[in-house]
Every structure is written in C-alpha cells, then in structure tokens.
Amino acid sequence: MNRILILAGLASLALCAWVLPLIVSDYVVRLLIMVCINIVLVGSMCLANGFTGVFSLGQVGFVAIGAYVSGILSLSLADKASYLPDLPMFLAHIEMATLPATLIAGLVCAAIAIVVGLPLMRLSGHHVSVATMGFMIIVNVVIINADSFTRGARTFTGVPTDMTLPWVVGWAVLAIFLLARLIYSPIGLALRSVREDVIAAQAVGLPVLGTRLLAFSFGAFLAGVGGSLYGHYLGSFSAQTFFFPLMVSLITMLVLGGMSSLSGVVTGVIVVTALSEMLRNLERGVHLGPVSIPPLFGASQVVLGLLFILVMIYRPRGLFEDREISSVFKRRKQRSNS
C-alpha cells in the first residue's frame, strides 16, 4: 500500500515536472529549479549539521569544488582551449556529459571531505563551526589563485546550461530518498546518538569519529552534486558566487525548517524561497491607489534577517523541530486504530 502510494506520488511529480513548464511562466520554472537545487544543497547540510551535531559553516566550500570540478569536466573542448589554455593534458581533452561530471564532482568532494574531516570531525561545538568556515575561506583563496584551472578571479563561463526542471526534480527526490534511507536506518540512529551524547555513544561502542566522518563525507558528496547542478544552471560563476552570502542563505533555509528533519529541509527551502521572492518584489515599491511606497532595495534582506532572529528566539529548532510529516500521519493512524 505504502509503496504504491510512493510510486504514484513520484509518477505524478515527474509528470508535473514535464508538464509544468508548459503552463506556468518561465520565472516560476526558474524558481522551482532553484528550490530543487537548494533542497539538494540544504539536504547536504542537514546530515552533518542536524543529525550529528557538528555544525559546519564550510559546506559552501564543497559546493564551490563541485561546481568547478563539474564545470571543468563538461566544458566543451573549444571553450577549454580558449578559457583554460593552461589546463594539464589529462583534463584538456575531456569533454563529459553533465551526469557523469556531476557524479565525479560529488565523489571528489566526498574524498576531500574524508581528508579534511579526519582532523576536523574531532572538534565539537563552535570550534568545528569556525574551523569549517576556515575551510571555506581556504577553498575560496585557492580557487582565486589556481588560475590555470579556474580562471582565477575572472568569471568561469561556458558551462553547458542544461538544467531542466525534470532533471533537478529527479535529483532533489533522489537526495531526499538517500538521506531518508540513511537517517532512518541503524546508521541514522548512531548519528543521532552521537549528537545527543558523545560520551554515552562511545561507551556503547559507537565509533564517534567514523560516524561523523560518514555524515560529513556523504553531505560533501551531495554538496558537490548540488554545486554541479547549480553550476550547470547558472552557466557562469566565480569564486565569489560560493562565499558568505550563499552560506547565509543556505543556513537560513536549514534552520528555519528545522535541521533535524527532512520535511523541515524541504519546507525551509520552499518557505524561504517564496518569502524572499515575495519580499524582493515588494521592496521594488508598492502602489495601492493613493498610497505608494517608494522602492527600498535591501529591505527584503533586513526583513528576512529579522525573521531569522525571531525563529531563533521562539523556535530555535525550526518549524519542524525533529518531526517528519510522515510521522504525523503515522501517529494519527495509530490513534484511529486504537
């Protein structure tokens, strides 16, 4: 019964993804594409940040690596010759389709995460936050200076822009599915017990470092995939695309929905996207009959920031805390059965 429901849901989602662009405006389609990409990115953060209690501020570093790796791999040979003339031989003659480039980008990020995480995942609290933020800054500096791979401070461009709605919907569903499998499995239990009490987890024989490392590197894989999708959506980006502003907006989505809940992740992304688009269109000025408010560019960020603070004060664990939509249904069902 449950499986049929899920399958039916997926099928209708796929149908929507195909048909929707024919009905709604291009602007809405773009928003939906960004929502899906952000679900992958925020999902990548929730694993480490929400479920293991290691609050990483460095995820955007992996997003950057993913975008650049996939960008370099999928750039056409002609563009490579003109934009990246100093690329090493083994890369200069590769022109890859988006899908394999995205997977490789994810794997590269996972590998880097293991190397970086081995020392960093030993830290906890704000120390790990500040250290991972340091990682992000280091990635930024390296990208700006690795001229022959990234064009340095110049815009990296020519990446095929082939992100259609069905593609990103597929990736978002896959990401949530993989995360759900991982979180609601014995490994997921281990993750949460590491979050709740490190010493108790160690006492019952859980490999704390290994568990955190798993979450961190799987998160990095998804971040790399999301970075690749983002890069293929934009077509052009630079090191500054993947820096503090992106980090702040991803964290806002993560925290608003509730970082220990996949439903929270999806809701957070949708709510923050809808809200910031609404505010962005409102701040351009409002004319209602005799009342007219002049444009106040920047007001949307101020309101969003204040809202973030209010959420921190009144609902610090997000809208969903650690509950899932499915568990609400289940509880109701149990109640009606008894």
């Binding site: 704000h126 702040v248 806002t252 973030f308 603070i309 921190m312």
Partner: peptide, 10 residues
C-alpha cells in the same frame, strides 16, 4: 552563533 550571523546580515 546563528543569531549573531543573522544580526550581521540585518
């Protein structure tokens, strides 16, 4: 930490 980050933004 997050509250202070939001405050910077504001």
């Amino acid at each position: 930490l997050l509250t202070s980050l939001a405050l910077t933004y504001v």
